[in-house]
Amino acid sequence: MAEFIDLVLLAMLALTALRVIFLKDLFAVVMLFGIYSFLSALIFVNLDAVDVAFTEASVGAGISTVLMLVTLALTGRTEKENKRSTVLPLLVVTVTGAALIYGTLDMPPFGDPNNPIHQHVAPRYIEESPKEVGLPNMVTSVLASYRGFDTLGETVVVFSAAIGVIALLGVRRREDLAAEESGFLTHHVLRVVAKMLIPLIILFALYVQFHGDFGPGGGFQAGVIAAAAFILYALVFGLPQAFSVVGAKFLQLMASFGVLLYASVGLYSMFKGGQFLDYSKLAADPVAGQHYGIIIIELGVGITVFAVMLSIFYAFGSQVERSNVK
């Protein structure tokens, strides 16, 4: 049955991607991209990657779509007619695709437990991590503990992306925005529904943050979900109102605080006599130490991701407000 669902969902995914090529209406393209992300999330669930599905649904279908729509508001929603010939791109794509298909024939069959990928480190993670780290969710153990250094790097990349966006677009101060009208203040249904939903979304984000050790979830997902709640607030009640709840300066502080919190856990474990990010040294009992370490660094990741996503939205949103004034 799972194989059948896999077949159908992947076929739908392929059709969605194919449709994007022929559409000239970019609004429809972005909406199709949202559908594409949701379909991929479903496929990830079907392939047992529940944490990945969680992230894809909140990031791909949530934040990416909003950012693309904001960009469309600034650049126009239709693609102009393209007079270039499509023969050459089609040829390149067909040849590359044929070579890749030929390459897949050398791959081990899908789902076979004896595949090389399942032979080296994976059995150790699966068998030892519940004892060594003490968490039922192996993805969190690997993410935060075994590959903690890697995750620190990813958090820094997310942080530097925020620096990039703010450097390119800039964030306006609250005073500049205060006089302008924005949001959907006259839509009563939207306002009431948003007011009911926002606390629930934030509550859910906190649950995902602190329950990520036991079930699917963690700092990355929680940060994005919390940011989605504030983005909804900013969309409905207007950017100036959102700025007065969480200011842009404060968010920049939060983003750097999260990265520093993560790195300082690493340094602290060095002072305790271990290696960088070796949480076993954080407490007398190594397993309890792992627990403390993972909770703190997941919090750091969550804070940074939240602040970065919201800062990026603020930067794009300020651009729209500016173009509305002109």
């Binding site: 944490d51 990945v52 992230t55 894809e56 990031v59 791909g60 934040i63 990416s64 950012l67 693309m68 904001v70 960009t71 600034l74 650049t75 993805v139 993410l143 890697d150 995750t151 990813e154 990349v157 997310v158 992306a161 925020a162 990039g164 966006v165 390119l168 677009l169 963690g218 990355f220 994005v224 991701v305 970065v308 996503m309 990026i312 930067a315 794009f316 651009q319």
Partner: peptide
Amino acid sequence: LTAIVVGVATTAVGLSLIV
């Protein structure tokens, strides 16, 4: 999982370049 979040961050940089 981490690649998805890094992906949206780099997409945001790309979109701001477009703006």
